[in-house]
């Protein structure tokens, strides 16, 4: 297991290298003069010069890149946000809990609903309950999540008045208020993502239910739900874990947009705001950080995978 863990850790290094290169290089794509774009039309020549120095635009791009890497690796420094007048690292860390808790809550709801739906569908395949559940999952997959957010706002906040239209309450201050603020954003993220989990659960469940050991379990007289939950359930875990890893990435991306809809002060809103106001160091840092989180999640999923299913450790090179 230790060898496997080390191997996985090492294999993340080139991925992170590509991730950081892309995060850095995206800014090089900006057409025209970045400093004058950022400063706006009213800036004086002096202000422009100062901004160029601050962004390192007076140096060649390779040197700028080396500086960026050096600051990042030695001090965890991603530069200064021009607009917030704050270090990018601090700005991101301040907002990270909102995004992470939103992603986590959405993931939990999606797994719960998805696995449940997949099991219901697989227990009676090709009946109306199966087809109904799977059709719902497919429709969910096809809805734009930000639009669903607006529909939720209209139904639950405007029409029914049950939930606030947006805004954030820290969990530590008021857990119930936090849940009320998070219910709609997490709900619409989860609804659009549970479909994938439901499908994979149903497919692997159908596969497992055909196996000999399930027949044996049934034959020895165990009640149906015990067989489904215990014998089959354990074997469904591995594929579900894999998909959950992928889903986390999609949810992180979805959270970026959903934060915008529900006015949640998370990393997504920071990045979108930075894009609209051309605060490039924040975009770089935000991209790098989000991708790194995703890489870490996949690493954890891979390790969990190996822990749950020992065969993985030997099968994979």
């Amino acid at each position: 297991m230790l060898r496997y863990t080390l191997g996985r850790l090492v294999s993340a290094v080139p991925v992170l290298l590509v991730v950081s290169l892309v995060s850095f290089a995206i800014i090089a794509l900006v057409p025209g003069d970045m400093a004058s774009e950022m400063a706006g039309p009213s800036a004086t020549a002096e202000e422009l010069a100062r901004l160029r120095t601050q962004l390192g635009l007076d140096k060649p791009i390779v040197e700028r890149m080396l500086d960026w890497y050096a600051a990042l690796l030695l001090r965890g420094d991603l530069g200064e946000s021009v607009l917030l007048r704050q270090s990018v690292t601090a700005a991101i860390l301040e907002r990270l809990p909102v995004t992470l808790s939103l992603t986590f809550l959405a993931l939990m709801v999606a797994i719960l609903l998805g696995v449940l739906a997949g099991m219901i569908a697989a227990v009676r395949p090709n009946t109306w309950s199966d087809q109904g559940v799977m059709a719902t999952a497919l429709v969910g997959l096809s809805l734009p999540d930000f639009w669903l957010g607006l529909v939720f706002i209209w139904i639950f906040a405007v029409q029914l008045g049950w939930l606030p239209t947006g805004g954030y309450v820290p969990f530590a201050e008021d857990p119930l208020g936090w849940l009320r603020a998070m219910a709609m954003p997490a709900g619409c993220l989860a609804l659009t993502q549970m479909g994938l989990l439901a499908r994979i659960t149903r497919a692997s469940m159908l596969d497992v239910l055909r196996q000999d050991f399930v027949r044996t379990a049934r034959a020895k007289g165990l009640p149906g739900w015990v067989v489904v939950a215990k014998h089959a359930g354990a074997n469904v875990l591995v594929p579900v874990l894999t998909v959950a890893g992928v889903t986390t990435g999609i949810l992180l991306g979805g959270a970026v947009v959903i934060e915008q809809v529900f006015s949640l002060p998370g990393v997504g809103r920071l990045i979108i705001g930075a894009i609209q106001r051309r605060d490039y160091p924040v975009i770089q840092g935000g991209l790098l950080l989000t991708a790194s989180i995703f890489v870490a999640v996949n690493l954890v999923v891979d390790l969990l995978y190996a822990a749950v299913d020992p065969r993985v450790r030997y099968d994979r090179r």
């Binding site: 590509v18 892309v22 999609i250 947009v257």
Partner: peptide, 9 residues
């Protein structure tokens, strides 16, 4: 490396 970014972001 490209897939490590959430596609939409």
């Amino acid at each position: 490396g490209l897939m490590a970014f959430p596609g939409i972001l």
